[in-house]
Write a protein that binds this DNA or RNA. Structure first.
Lengths: 106, 106
DNA sequence: TTAACATTTCTAGTATTGTCGAACTGATTA
DNA sequence: TAATCAGTTCGACAATACTAGAAATGTTAA
């Protein structure tokens, strides 16, 4: 339950949800469109944080903060390659929160 | 998306989630047990707010506030009968948030 | 080696929010 | 009618959280 709260809190902020959707909606690092939620095909290994920053208007330090919250909630994983950090969604977290809301499960 | 944020915000508070689970977990007005999340069979028409108050330790004004937040998010409906207010979950809200997290839908 | 880039850490300010007490309204009971 | 019960409204306080600027770290390019 503690875990559910963490996930809900992490996603309950508009900016952070946008960041999450950006990471979730696009496996690659280019072509993601917030309006449609679509992207033109992703590369492997997650979304580059610098690309998220282009889509979500906020200070770098703010973005780092939001990514930390999402990571602490178990919603994303990050990986550094060179000077770029790539982020991707943790499927287990999605499954957990989906199960919480699924009418047949609960 | 605005609606999703409202729902997430409403449930992202421990006390409020407990209130929600209490209403959700028990269609009736008696026998709900927070520990197990079970109840001994519900009566029709939702859960009495006074019974929720017995299970969730907080001031009456606090409970009213939380119920308002849940109602504004579309998560519950309330109905006054006599001097007792009954609350029940809105299935549409659950479906909406469930769809948001369901891996096949999004 | 120097410069530019991506990201983080630290700090601080502002805004939001959870909580409650006191007073009040409406409904039931004695 | 008076008293009690279920909730609400209002106001205030403390805690949390979002945000960003400045400075620092590590990496790549010139």
């Amino acid at each position: 339950m503690e875990e559910i709260i963490l996930i809900l809190k992490a996603l309950a902020d508009p900016t952070r949800l946008e960041v999450f959707q950006c990471i979730r909606g696009c496996g690659g690092s280019a072509g993601y469109d917030i309006g449609t939620g679509m992207c033109d095909g992703g590369t492997e290994g997650g979304v580059a944080v610098c690309d998220v920053k282009c889509k979500v208007p906020c200070a770098p330090s703010t973005l780092t903060h939001h990514l930390n919250v999402l990571r602490d909630a178990g919603l994303i994983e990050t990986q550094k390659r060179g000077r770029v950090v790539y982020a991707c969604v943790r499927a287990e977290a999605i499954q957990k929160i989906a199960a919480f809301f699924a009418p047949e499960t609960k």
